[in-house]
């Protein structure tokens, strides 16, 4: 039985179709990543899963339990870590965990034991009896993780777990999630960071404008795109005509499938090439012959960004920027309030 089963999920807010068609299956014991730019429908999907929002149509099951028909039972099996950590700053970490334990109806003795375990597990000993208002961002996230795991959920759901965290806290969260998986907990995370999904997820679904556009293991997805990538910079900042000249030159090479000029990166050239070692050499020789310098050149396997680019015709970063410009923060806040 799948840990999470979502089929044909749809949710609209007024005229906005936040989620158009999302289907995904999270297997027990894996880290599943939901990757997409801001505003793609990741959070809405999670809110439907965690019973915060009622879906318009579709099926959502947690360990075979429908979240729409049996929300209480589903809630018992889910641990939800929202993107923005909402702690009561007047309470101490321990008091927050005690509240959380009571909300999940743990018996007193069990609660005490679990709280001690969680404080130990997340290295919160020093901080447990201080008010959460004094915590750093990383500490707050750790306390939130402790709270989400207190009742031993089947599935831990995290919405953008490392947004706004410093690098060290981020890697702590990553390591912690990996160890959770080793201990058998199923983890579902959303992210708009490629590296995060690449580093953590066993399987991934890429979501764009409310639709799942690709899913599989990260390497499957990359293989499916095919070809290697070469990033070439003729100069640190190349003039456009020179970049154009190099483009037409390189396009004639048999190993080169496609050349894109990226004006945002000082007119660097992104090449899709046949995946073998001669490709790189061929490009360098062709440049030398034409008398063009090389500021930097690197060959790489396709990334998840290339998967996204192939499916949508834009990069995640572009999509993110576009989304940031068109988002109505106030309307979204309203949606997320209950």
């Amino acid at each position: 039985m799948a840990a999470v089963f979502i089929e044909k999920l749809q949710k609209r807010y007024g005229s906005v179709e936040a989620v158009k068609d999302v289907s995904l299956t999270v297997q027990s014991g894996e880290i599943f990543g939901l990757l997409g730019p801001n505003g793609a429908g990741k959070t809405t999907t999670l809110r439907c899963l965690c019973t915060l929002t009622e879906p318009d149509s579709g099926t959502i099951e947690v360990s075979g339990i429908s979240v729409v028909d049996n929300p209480r039972q589903a809630r018992q099996r889910l641990g939800y870590i929202a993107q923005e950590v909402a702690l009561d700053k007047v309470l101490t970490g321990r008091e927050l965990l005690e509240l959380q334990a009571a909300l999940y109806h743990l018996p007193k003795a069990t609660a005490k034991q679990r709280i001690a375990e969680m404080i130990d597990l997340l290295g919160l000993d020093e901080w447990a009896d201080k008010r959460t208002g004094t915590y750093s961002g990383g500490l707050k996230k750790r306390l939130d993780l402790a709270a989400g795991l207190l009742h031993q959920p089947d599935v831990l759901v995290l919405d953008e777990p490392t947004v706004g965290l410093d690098i060290e806290s981020r890697s702590t969260v990553w390591n912690f999630l990996r160890r959770l998986r080793e201990a058998g907990t199923t983890v579902l995370i959303t992210s708009h960071y490629l590296e995060e999904i690449d580093a953590l997820a066993d399987r991934v679904a890429i979501i764009d404008r409310g639709v799942v556009i690709a899913s599989g293991t990260p390497s499957e997805l990359k293989d499916r795109v095919g070809g290697d990538r070469i990033t070439l910079r003729i100069r640190e900042f190349s003039p456009t005509d020179e970049a154009q000249q190099a483009k037409s030159l390189l396009e004639s090479l048999p190993t080169v499938q496609e050349v894109i000029i990226n004006p945002a990166q000082g007119n660097s050239l992104n090449l899709v090439v046949t995946p073998n070692s001669e490709a790189l050499m061929g490009v360098q020789q062709a440049l030398q012959k034409a008398g063009l310098p090389t500021f930097g050149i690197a060959q790489s396997r396709p990334s998840l960004d290339d998967v996204y680019l192939t499916a949508t015709g834009r990069t995640l970063l572009d999509a993110d920027l576009a989304a940031a410009g068109s988002r109505d923060a106030k309307a979204e806040k309203k949606q997320n309030m209950r």
Binding site: R72, G138, Q152, F176, R179, G184, T185
Partner: peptide
């Protein structure tokens, strides 16, 4: 941030603490 966050097997893979089959609704409320 400490780097020794290792979930113990016992801490995370026990049976569910709550048995939803026999809810004592009043007590829980």
């Amino acid at each position: 941030m400490s780097s020794t966050l290792t979930p113990s097997k016992s801490g995370l893979s026990e049976k569910p603490l709550v048995t939803p089959s026999q809810p004592n609704l009043v007590g829980e409320f």
